[in-house]
Design a protein around this nucleic acid. Structure first.
Length: 414
RNA sequence: GGACAGGUGGGUGAGCUGGCUGAAACCACAUCCCUGCUAAGGAUGCGUACUGGUAACGGUACCGAGGGUUCGAAUCCCUCCCUGUCCGCCA
């Protein structure tokens, strides 16, 4: 959530910054207006309440002195009516303000490039050179079906489209990758955590999936519970409503979970193959830091994911997302895109974001900075999307005869 | 899922026959003092959010959450959530 006081004090600047995310001025203006009006109304309400409290305390005094209380009572009854009326106004304003505030995305960092969509993202660097093939490299779904590694039809039979089944070596490889990634991240100082795959509404609100992106979530019928779209949600919410000790920061975590997404806005995209599924495995990194630590930790997380790909000898590149392509909660994001020879393209395999205090404000995650409580910064990043890593291995390690070599570092995990 | 018992500040835990209780006491923590030897004594401070004020210092709200009764609720009533124990079920 935005810092509303900041919005009030630096309105023009904030508007300018949010232009990168295509937010209309009017929305911010209305938000600001509501904020100011609410403050006014609340002030008036508090005055009334103060009077009520003060005079109520006279009751026992009057009774003791055997004074007549009927006049006092009458006054208070009248004042109470005013309070009730004012309370309604304040409550309505608060609700309206919240709807506005929760739907406004995070402010991009100053170094985030201006741009419309993924075409305006900026390539930062390439790591490893794609291999030269002396044959036409196949796409992963062709390899997968030929080897009996991926069963798309039966996945659909069990659930629906965009579900698939991994078999034999692919199933083992998936599991090996998860273990390898967790171990790799642990060596970089990220502590392994195992969390629920189902979370409540408050958790989703705190990390920003709700209220805006309800359409992309699987909701449990009859309950205020949702399947997680990423481990970022439970991992970040671990510290919701807590005031952390300064010495405990930064908190670096890694965790494996399955992830569930409706992919509501992706009809027709990547329908073939395993790139975009309703359920996929992911090993995630989440960090909670002091504000002055978050840039450093961000770099560390990007480096961790990149080195992980390098260790698997998978060529990839780092891309800085432009304002238009930035996610809702992110102030800054670097994507890692892995080379897929079958598709002859780089495809996203990891996304590392710094949300600054955006999620922290919603989730009320703070730390004691001397005497004061300050909001932390939260960061998240994939390390890595496991299914896509499997695909990348299949396409990059494929042989002319259709077999797939196993990356050196994974051998001891199989 | 059923029955009962509970949910109070960082922790333990009073208050719960409604008013001077934002909340005793103890512990933990912080600063200071004393003492000197490895442990103890004393003083003070110590919830969160918003809000007024340069500040000193005030105001409002919060005792699981949301409603209600009342001039006034941590205390009474209702709904929900959670925890514990026993029973049932189960990996």
């Amino acid at each position: 959530m935005l810092d509303l006081k900041k919005l009030q004090n630096n309105f023009d600047e904030t508007v300018k910054k949010l232009k990168k995310k295509k937010i209309k001025d009017e929305v911010l203006k209305e938000l600001n207006r509501l904020f100011v009006v609410l403050k006014e109304q609340k002030g008036e309400l508090e005055k009334l309440q103060s009077e009520q409290n003060r005079k109520s305390k006279l009751f026992p005094v009057y009774l003791k002195e055997k004074k007549d209380i009927s006049e006092l009572k009458k006054e208070l009854e009248e004042n109470k009516q005013k309070i009730t009326f004012k309370q309604k106004i304040v409550k309505d304003l608060e609700e309206e303000l919240e709807i506005y505030a929760l739907n406004i995305p995070n402010i991009p960092d100053d170094d985030v490039p201006i741009g419309e969509d993924e075409n305006d993202n900026i390539e930062l660097k390439k790591v490893l050179t794609p291999r030269e093939f002396d044959f036409e490299p196949k796409q992963h779904w062709e390899l997968g079906e030929n080897l009996g590694w991926i069963d798309f039809e039966r996945g659909v039979k069990l659930a629906k489209s965009r579900f698939s089944v991994l078999k034999s070596d692919a199933a083992k490889l998936e599991r090996a990758l998860i273990n390898y990634m967790l171990d790799f991240n642990a060596k970089r100082g990220f502590n392994e955590v195992c969390v629920p795959y189902i979370v409540n509404k408050t958790s989703m609100l705190s990390t920003g999936q709700l209220p805006k992106f309800a359409d992309d979530l699987f909701k449990i019928e009859g309950e205020e519970l949702y399947l997680i779209p990423t481990a970022e949600v439970p991992l970040t919410n671990l510290y919701r409503d807590e005031i952390l000790k300064e010495n405990d920061l930064p908190i670096l975590m890694t965790g494996y979970t399955a992830c569930f997404r409706k992919e509501a806005g992706s009809a027709g995209r990547d329908t073939r193959g395993m790139i975009r599924q309703h359920q996929f495995d992911k090993v995630e990194l989440v960090s909670i830091t002091k504000p002055d630590q978050s840039d450093e930790v961000f770099d560390k997380m990007v480096e961790c994911a990149s080195d992980l790909l390098t260790s698997l000898e998978l060529p990839h590149r780092l891309v800085m997302l432009c304002g238009g392509d930035l996610g809702f909660g992110a102030a800054k994001t670097i994507d890692l895109e892995v080379w897929l020879p079958g598709q002859n393209k780089y495809r996203e395999i990891s996304s590392v974001s710094n949300t600054r205090d955006f999620q922290a404000r919603r989730a009320k995650i703070r730390f004691k900075d001397g005497k004061k409580n300050r909001l932390v910064h939260t960061l998240n990043g994939s390390s890595l999307a496991v299914g896509r890593t499997l695909i990348a291995i299949m396409e990059n390690y494929q042989q002319k005869d259709g077999n797939i070599l196993i990356p050196e570092v994974l051998k001891k995990y199989l």
